[in-house]
Design a binder for these strands. Sequence first.
DNA 1: ATGACTTTCAGCGAAAGA
Length: 268
Amino acid sequence: MSQNTIRIATFNVNSIKARLPRVTEWLEEAKPDVALLQELKCADESFPHFEIESAGYKAEIHGQKSYNGVAILSRHPIEDVRRGLPGADEMGDDADQARYIEATVKGIRLASIYLPNGNPAPGPKFDYKLRWMERLRAHVAETLLPSERPLALGGDYNVCPTDRDVHDPTGFAEDALCRPESRAAFRALLNLGLTEAWRALHPNAEGKYSYWDYGAGAWQKDNGLRIDHFLLSPQAADRLVECEIDRRPRGREKPSDHTPVVVELTVD
DNA sequence: ATGACTTTCAGCGAAAGA
């Protein structure tokens, strides 16, 4: 007896308008049930709903002009949408940054996350990154995990979890993506009981990346970083079938600097 | 090599990205 599965992708598109041909052709070929997008760089009212619906997807948006912006695209109904993490009021400086959207699809609680980059580090942007990560940790601990439901948090975490996830560990040692504080905050999420899906299925892999800089021939030389991840609650990790990096979109004309990561989970 | 590339902005150079 075969089981039904759901395929969920995460993709930092680096402008949904500039990337629309890449995104629609990838949706047509990869056909994920859900696509979590980051860096839309557009306001809610200018999101290209017509083209996305024509590809077969409904979209819930948390947009922002010029910067940031996240979305949940789905071929199935999207329920109980939440925009933004709790705690913005205490932050003082980020009430507007559109970096988090959460919703339920087919009984799975999903989030699309665009974690702050944090460079240059040290500095105020790095402090902001660490505060944002603590807000995410608190929300997962206080609200999401206690529900004891399947939970998949996908997105651009802007963290290389270990040196195996960086083409040049020495050169990036002081970078906000690789610094010990960033990695400790990422491990604090895992220590709540979350599973990093790709690493769980590829425990010994090195040199597998989800981002390549536009410059210096980084893609051609495979000088990349693995910073796009899925974190799963125990109830979702028990359903984990597969997690793969889809390199195809990065090699095409006018690509995003990121490429999608796809996770497959069984559903009832 | 003080670089490299891309996107946005009521732009015309600068900021941000990672």
